[in-house]
Structure formats: structure tokens, C-alpha cells
């Protein structure tokens, strides 16, 4: 049972990791906690569903269209709402993302109703591989793991070695200075939001295929992703992914051996304990503002 709990924990942790990655991308560039992340992803999943079920398109086509939609949605929200904020403070920006979350939720529920839908996916969750003993892992879990790790490496390389990635980091550290250095801060922000939305959409497709598709799909994964990101350090991509795995495994072990009832909240207790020792998460450098 121990082996299976850890395997399942890593499998579910991969979905948390994807959401955490999405949140970290935005936080890294703009220090905004994006509460609309989950519902942006949910809306993209609905677009994929619509392409698949209503218009009968193939998987490749549908997912490409939906990811393109996700990118456009992220870029649009940044351009149309966040950039318009006058002299924004951090809390104000959080409230704007909350407002966006409600709007997206409302639109999705208005368009598709509240009935659960089945989200078709090319990879099965029922075809499993034996990992020795009676420990199994499904194809879908492997895909999720693969996507999470691949995206992490891609993003890591992107932020470290490409010009745009470095510009994004510069924007976070000092917007004013970045602008003076010739960085188009607005454009960078839009790009960030678009990228983050795409990563979130990937998470939503994978989650919807084991869960059922409805407007409430991404609320819990978003909270979990947020927790994972905080655990990893909010600005660290590797931290976000490892945070997701740690969260998944801790939850499953606690659920398996101690109490399933408190499984959902134990993560928070662990996080608070860890944060008391390392106030900026496991993998981020703690830096103190100057007076």
C-alpha cells in the first residue's frame, strides 16, 4: 500500500505542479496572485470540449485550438483589465483577478450549464503498467508527469537562456528600470499571461479527463497549485513542481495512514510548519526589503 500511495501521490502531484507552474509564471513577472488562473483553464477546457463534442474535430485539432484560445484569453485579460488599473496596489490586483474569476465562472456556467460532462481524452486512465508488486501507474498519469516535467524544463530554459525570458525576470525585479532598458513591459506582461494560461489549460485538460467537466472543475486544483507554489517558493519553477509532488505525496500518505477526513487540510499544516522555518518557501531565496 505504501508504494501505491506514493505513486498515486506523485501522479496527482503532477497536476498540482502544472497549476503551480502557471501561477509562478505570472507571479515571477508581475507579483500578482492570479485567482483567475483556474477558471481561465476551465474555460479553455470547455472550448476543447466544444470542439470535440459539438463540432466533432479530432483531438490534435481541438487541443491546438483550445491552447490557442487559452493564450489569447490570458493576453486579452492582461491587456483589457490588469493593465488598465491606475496606480495599482497588490491587493487591488488580487481583487481584479477575483473579479475576473467570477466573470469567467459566470460565462462558462451560462454557456454550458452546470451538468457534469465527460471530457474525452486520447490517453486512458484505465490502461495501467505494473511497477512491481501490485503498484500500478496509468498511461494518463505518465503523460501528466511527462507534461509537468517537460514544461518545467522548457520554462526553466526559457527564463534562463532566452532574451524574452530574461526580460520577464527583469520586469519583476524593477519595472521602471526594465522600461528604461528598452523592455516593452506591457508586451512582456501580455506574453506572460498568455503563457501562464496555456500551462493552466494543459493542467485543465489532464484534470478534466479523470474528473468530470463542469464550471467548478478547477477551484480545488487552483488552491492546491497555489499551495504547491508557495511551498516551493512562489518564484521558483523547480520549486513549484517539487512542491506539487511533495503536496501530493504528503496528502496521500496522511490519507492512507492517519485520516482521510483531514487529508484536505493537512497540506496547509505542513506548509505553515515549513514556512515557519523557511519563510519564502523551500526553493526561493529569502530576501528582505530595504527600508
Amino acid at each position: 500500500m505504501l508504494g501505491q500511495l506514493i505513486t498515486s501521490g506523485i501522479a496527482i502531484g503532477a497536476t498540482y505542479a502544472l497549476m503551480a507552474l502557471a501561477m509562478v509564471i505570472i507571479y515571477k513577472t508581475s507579483e500578482v496572485l492570479n485567482f483567475a488562473q483556474g477558471d481561465m483553464a476551465m474555460l479553455s477546457a470547455f472550448v476543447a470540449y466544444m470542439c470535440l463534442s459539438t463540432y466533432g474535430l479530432g483531438f490534435a485539432m481541438s487541443f491546438t485550438l483550445a491552447l490557442a484560445f487559452a493564450f489569447a484569453l490570458g493576453a486579452f485579460l492582461e491587456f483589457a483589465f490588469l493593465r488598465r488599473a491606475k496606480e495599482p496596489n497588490v491587493l487591488g490586483l488580487i481583487i481584479i483577478t477575483l473579479g475576473l474569476e467570477m466573470m469567467l465562472y459566470g460565462l462558462a456556467s451560462w454557456r454550458w450549464g452546470s451538468d457534469q460532462k465527460d471530457f474525452p481524452f486520447p490517453v486512458s486512465d484505465f490502461d495501467v503498467y505494473q511497477l512491481g508488486g501490485d503498484v500500478v501507474i496509468s498511461q494518463l498519469n505518465l503523460v501528466t508527469l511527462g507534461v509537468a516535467c517537460a514544461l518545467m524544463i522548457l520554462l526553466f530554459v526559457f527564463f534562463r537562456y532566452t532574451k524574452v525570458g530574461v526580460a520577464m525576470k527583469a520586469t519583476q525585479q524593477n519595472q521602471q528600470a526594465a522600461r528604461l532598458m528598452g523592455i516593452r513591459v506591457g508586451r512582456i506582461m501580455m506574453l506572460t499571461w498568455g503563457m501562464s494560461s496555456v500551462v493552466g489549460a494543459c493542467a485543465a485538460f489532464l484534470i478534466a479527463s479523470t474528473d468530470t467537466l463542469d464550471p467548478n472543475l478547477m477551484w480545488t486544483p487552483q488552491l492546491k497549485g497555489f499551495s504547491a507554489a508557495v511551498l516551493g517558493g512562489m518564484t521558483s519553477l523547480v520549486g513549484a513542481v517539487l512542491g506539487g509532488f511533495i503536496l501530493g505525496v504528503v496528502e496521500n500518505l496522511f490519507g492512507g495512514y492517519v485520516s482521510v477526513e483531514f487529508k484536505a487540510v493537512v497540506a496547509f499544516a505542513v506548509i505553515v510548519l515549513i514556512l515557519c522555518v523557511k519563510p519564502s518557501g523551500l526553493f526561493a531565496k529569502h530576501y528582505v526589503r530595504k527600508v
Partner: peptide
């Protein structure tokens, strides 16, 4: 929800 969110934003 749409209206509520919009007002907040």
C-alpha cells in the same frame, strides 16, 4: 456573477 465580477474589476 458576470455583473458582480465586472463591478468589482
Amino acid at each position: 456573477y458576470v455583473v458582480f465580477g465586472l463591478i468589482m474589476v
